[in-house]
Design a protein around this nucleic acid. Structure first.
Lengths: 225, 225
DNA sequence: TATTGCAGGAATGTATCCAATGCCAAGTCT
DNA sequence: AGACTTGGCATTGGATACATTCCTGCAATA
C-alpha cells in the first residue's frame, strides 16, 4: 500500500499533494471544505504554481474537486454516490483478491492472521481503520496490477471520511462483531486457497457494509463545512 | 457521452486538454509518443503553464503519463494491462447497464435500434467505432451516476487505440458478425426490461472481445513510437 | 419591495523569467 | 579498452507579476 510515505527531496508539487492527501485521509480536512491556493502557498512557503499542480494531482486521486475560475474543495459524496462507490468495490475487490490468492506467501498469511487478532483489540477507531486497511491490502498487493489496485485504493480513499463517521457509530453500538467474523471466514478461505469462496465472502463483506451505510443517512448530514 | 465538444470560450488549459484528448482518441497521437510542453505551447500560441495543467487533466483521464523532471507521454498499455482493463469493464459495465435499463425511454430504444442497423452498414472502421460507442453509451447514460460512468468512459478511452488496431484486424477477417448478433440480443433483452439477462449478455460481449484480444499480441507490438 | 445594473474586491488563470534536474557525450583515469 | 567523471544542453519545475473571471453587495429604478 503506497500510504504516502513522504518523499524527502521529491518535487515540491508532489510533496504538497502528499501532505494534503494525508490531511484529508486523517480527517484533518473535511469533505466540502474550501481550499484556497494562496493560503496553501503561504502555508508551504511556495508559490501558487506547485500548489495548483498538487491540487490537480489530488483531483486525479478523486480527493479534490476543482471548478474553473471558482476554486477547489475537498471532495464530498452524497449518500447515493457513496453507495455507488461501494457497489463498484463489491465488483472490483473480489477480482483483485482472486488475482492475489494464489500468489500470497506464508508470511503474508501470518501477518494477515496477526492483523485480524489485533483488530479485535484495537484501542481506538483510528487504530482499527489502519489495521483493517493493512489487512485487506496485504491480500491485494502481492500481484502487481497496474490499474485495478490504483482504482481500488482511490475508492478506499474517497470513501474514507464517511467510513470513519460510520464506524464510530457502529462501533459505539457494539456492532463490530460481525466484521471480525467476516474477516476470519475470509482469511480461512484465503488460507485454503479457495479463491471463489474468498471472492464471495469479500463481496458479502463489502455489501453488508454498504447496506448498513445506506441505513445511516445521518453520516452524510453535515456536507459543506 | 461527453465526447469532448470543444467549449468555445472556456479556460485555456481545458481547451488544450480537450484538443489533446481528441488527438489521442482519433489516433493522431499514438500510445508511447512523447509530449513536449514547449512544443505544445507554441502550437497553441500559449505559455507552458496551461499546457502543464492540460497534461495533468489528461493524467486524470488516464491518457497521459507524467514523470517528474523527465516528461510526459501518451499512455501506452501492455497486453496484460489492456486485458486487465477489459476484466474491469466486464464487471462494471453490466452494473451501469442495470442501473439504466429501467430508466431508458422509448426514444432511447428507437435510437439504439437504428444504431445497431447502421453498424451493420458502417462504411469504415472509424464510423463503426463511433456508432458502437454511441450505442453502448445510450444504454449507459440515462441514469446519472457520478462515478461509475466517468470510470467507464475512462476505460473506453484508454483502451481505444488498441481496440482500433484490433478491430481493423478482426474486421478484415470478416469476424465482426458475432458482434452484430451480440448487439441484437443485448438490445432485445433491454427492450424486454430483462436487466439480468442484459447484464449477462453485456458481460459476455466484453469478455469475448477480451479473450480474442488476448490472442492477438501483435496489437501491442509497436510500443514506443 | 423586488429586481436589475454596476462597481469593487478577492480569487483564479496566464505570461515571462529564472532555477534545478536529468540525460548524453566527450574526456580522463585506471 | 573499459568504466567513471564532468561539463553542457535540453527540458521540466517554480517564482513573480499581471490579466481575467466571478461573486457580492450596494444602490438605483420600476
Amino acid at each position: 500500500m503506497s500510504m504516502t510515505n513522504t518523499p524527502p527531496n521529491a518535487v515540491l508539487s508532489t510533496r504538497i499533494a502528499d501532505e494534503l492527501r494525508q490531511s484529508i485521509l486523517t480527517g484533518e480536512l473535511s469533505p466540502g471544505e474550501r481550499i484556497r491556493q494562496e493560503e496553501l502557498a503561504e502555508q508551504f512557503g511556495a508559490s501558487r504554481i506547485p500548489v495548483r499542480e498538487a491540487l490537480r494531482i489530488l483531483v486525479t486521486d478523486g480527493l479534490v474537486n476543482m471548478v474553473s475560475n471558482s476554486g477547489a474543495w475537498v471532495s464530498s459524496l452524497t449518500q447515493d454516490e457513496c453507495s455507488e462507490q461501494y457497489q463498484i468495490r463489491e465488483r472490483l475487490e473480489p477480482l483483485l483478491l482472486r488475482y492475489n490468492v494464489p500468489a500470497l506467501t506464508p508470511d503474508d498469511l501470518v501477518r494477515a492472521t496477526e492483523l485480524v487478532e489485533q483488530m479485535k483489540k484495537a484501542p481506538d477507531l483510528e487504530a482499527f481503520m489502519r489495521l483493517d486497511r493493512e489487512f485487506h491490502w496485504i491480500t491485494y498487493s502481492r500481484v502487481e496490477t497496474n490499474i485495478l489496485s490504483e482504482l481500488i485504493e482511490r475508492l478506499w480513499n474517497t470513501t474514507q471520511p464517511y467510513r470513519r463517521v460510520f464506524m464510530k457509530l457502529v462501533r459505539s453500538e457494539g456492532g463490530i462483531e460481525v466484521t471480525h467474523l467476516e474477516h476470519e471466514l475470509l482469511l480461512e478461505a484465503i488460507k485454503r486457497g479457495d479463491s471463489e469462496e474468498a471472492e464471495n465472502l469479500l463481496r458479502g463483506h463489502i455489501r453488508r457494509t454498504r447496506i448498513e451505510l445506506d441505513r445511516h443517512p445521518e453520516v452524510f448530514a453535515h456536507q459543506f463545512d
